[in-house]
Simulated scan of single mutants.
Amino acid sequence: MSTLIVIPARYASTRYPAKPLVTLTGATGEKKTLIRRSWDAAMSVQGDLRVVVATDDERIRAEAESFGAEVVMTSPECRNGTERCAEAHANLGGGFEYVVNLQGDAPLTPPWFIEALIAGIKGCDLDLATPVLRCEGAMLEALKEDRRHDRVGGTTAVFGASHQALYFSKEVVPFTSQTYAPDAPTPVFHHVGAYAYRAEALARYPGWDIGPLEQLEGLEQLRFLENGHDILCVEVESRGRQFWELNNPSDVSRIEAMMAEMGLA
Rank of each mutant, 00 (worst) to 15 (best):
residue 157 A to F: 05
residue 186 T to N: 06
residue 257 A to I: 03
residue 226 E to Q: 14
residue 40 D to K: 04
residue 263 G to T: 03
residue 33 T to E: 10
residue 155 T to F: 10
residue 24 L to Y: 05
residue 198 R to N: 03
residue 9 A to P: 04
residue 242 Q to S: 14
residue 18 A to G: 08
residue 135 C to E: 10
residue 106 A to L: 02
residue 174 P to N: 11
residue 35 I to C: 05
residue 235 E to G: 02
residue 37 R to M: 09
residue 108 L to T: 11
residue 206 P to F: 07
residue 241 R to V: 10
residue 76 P to L: 02
residue 50 R to N: 12
residue 169 S to T: 14
residue 148 R to G: 04
residue 60 I to F: 01
residue 204 R to D: 13
residue 262 M to D: 12
residue 261 E to V: 01
residue 165 A to V: 13
residue 163 H to V: 01
residue 73 M to Y: 00
residue 124 C to S: 11
residue 59 R to T: 02
residue 44 S to L: 12
residue 122 K to P: 02
residue 245 E to T: 15
residue 64 A to K: 02
residue 238 S to W: 07
residue 160 G to R: 13
residue 182 P to S: 11
residue 263 G to H: 01
residue 234 V to Q: 05
residue 14 T to P: 12
residue 5 I to N: 04
residue 135 C to N: 15
residue 143 L to R: 03
residue 190 H to N: 15
residue 165 A to Q: 02
residue 181 A to R: 12
residue 218 G to R: 13
residue 144 K to R: 15
residue 159 F to K: 07
residue 212 P to E: 14
residue 16 Y to D: 07
residue 130 T to K: 10
residue 80 N to P: 06
residue 150 D to C: 11
residue 247 N to W: 12
residue 157 A to Q: 06
residue 61 R to D: 03
residue 94 G to P: 10
residue 232 L to G: 05
residue 84 R to H: 04
residue 201 A to F: 03
residue 222 L to W: 04
residue 41 A to R: 09
residue 220 E to A: 15
residue 152 V to A: 15
residue 108 L to H: 08
residue 141 E to S: 12
residue 255 I to T: 03
residue 111 P to N: 04
residue 83 E to H: 14
residue 93 G to H: 11
residue 145 E to P: 00
